[in-house]
């Protein structure tokens, strides 16, 4: 296996990386499909050869979506001998999904995440939470990874990683340490009252002035965020098994409090879950390719 990791140290929610399986001889393949997920912060590409993952890439999104799609796919394919032209069918997903120049179809992150999570974690997954830097998605799916119920919020910062970043900045705690620091308390404080990030910030400043240590303020905000997410999940119906993807999955301060509030533990995996959307897109590409070939 060829693997390369570039740590940028910029943001907790992503590391540049790529991987490929040198044991697969793609030149003999019947189907070569790709899923390209162009997000607002990072982009991922997954290339599948006859239904098996052949190569993956994960990079920062640049200022242009088409370039980011090309770059991340080329980065995944580097050294494998495969070119973008060799791919039979590509599905674009994510925020920049309609700007993947070599894609035949664009499918939302909602559908792709559910499909990808089903593949990564297995068919027992029913509830999926994906919280990135600027949005939050809650999905309820069936045993095939088909979406039953979903909601997405990219309107309000309170339900996104961005809200947590505002707090990390306010309290001068690195975002990677927030989860850990939120447990350095004697007793769990009541959650921050205000949902709105702007008002919560004012509230937190008041708590600090009242003598609260910052660990306690962080704990109170992690609780508030867990509560908010729990409410969103309840709207679409929470059922076992439950998985969390996106940057928030790395914040144990929110994850542990959310698990406690819902009374459900999350499933864990060693697979890089940031690839979930791209895996789902590559699987859809495979199904759509088959459909096209049988129609032809």
């Amino acid at each position: 296996m060829a693997q390369e990791v570039r740590t940028t140290g910029e943001y907790w929610r992503w590391t540049e990386s790529r991987w490929n399986d040198p044991d697969i001889d793609w030149r003999k393949a019947k189907t070569i499909t790709a899923g390209v997920d162009v997000g607002s912060v990072s982009s991922q590409a997954v290339i599948m050869v006859d239904g098996k993952i052949f190569a993956t890439g994960n990079m920062r999104t640049g200022s242009s979506s088409p370039d980011s799609a090309l770059n991340v796919t080329n980065w995944a394919l580097e050294g494998t001998g495969m070119k973008i032209e060799d791919i039979h069918y590509t599905v674009g997903t994510g925020y920049g999904r309609v700007n993947v120049p070599f894609a035949q179809k664009a499918i939302t992150e909602i559908a792709c995440h559910a499909r990808g999570a089903n593949w990564i974690y297995g068919p027992t997954v029913r509830t999926l939470l994906d919280m990135g830097g600027q949005d939050c998605k809650a999905i309820h799916c069936d045993e095939k990874g088909k979406v039953i119920n979903f909601l997405m919020n990219d309107k309000c910062a309170a339900g996104t990683g961005r809200g947590m970043e505002v707090f990390a900045d306010l309290l001068a705690v690195p975002i990677t340490k927030i989860g850990e620091v939120s447990f350095q308390i004697d007793e769990e404080p009541p959650a921050v009252n205000s949902t709105c990030v702007v008002f919560a910030k004012t509230e937190a400043t008041g708590l600090l002035r009242a003598g609260w240590p910052k660990e306690k303020v962080i704990a109170a905000y992690c609780s508030a965020m867990a509560h908010r997410v729990a409410e969103l999940l309840e709207r679409i119906g929470v059922e076992k098994d439950f998985v969390i993807t996106g940057g928030i999955s790395k914040n144990i301060g929110v994850v542990k409090r959310l698990e406690k509030e819902l009374g459900i533990e999350t499933l864990k995996t060693d697979f890089d879950v940031q690839l979930a959307g791209a895996v789902g897109a590559a699987l859809f590409a495979q199904a759509l390719l088959k459909k096209h070939r049988s129609a032809a």
Partner: peptide, 16 residues
């Protein structure tokens, strides 16, 4: 599929 279009903010939940 049940699709929720909209958002939740501090003032309430606004979904079609």
């Amino acid at each position: 599929m049940i699709a929720h279009y909209g958002y939740k903010d501090a003032s309430g939940e606004y979904f079609i």
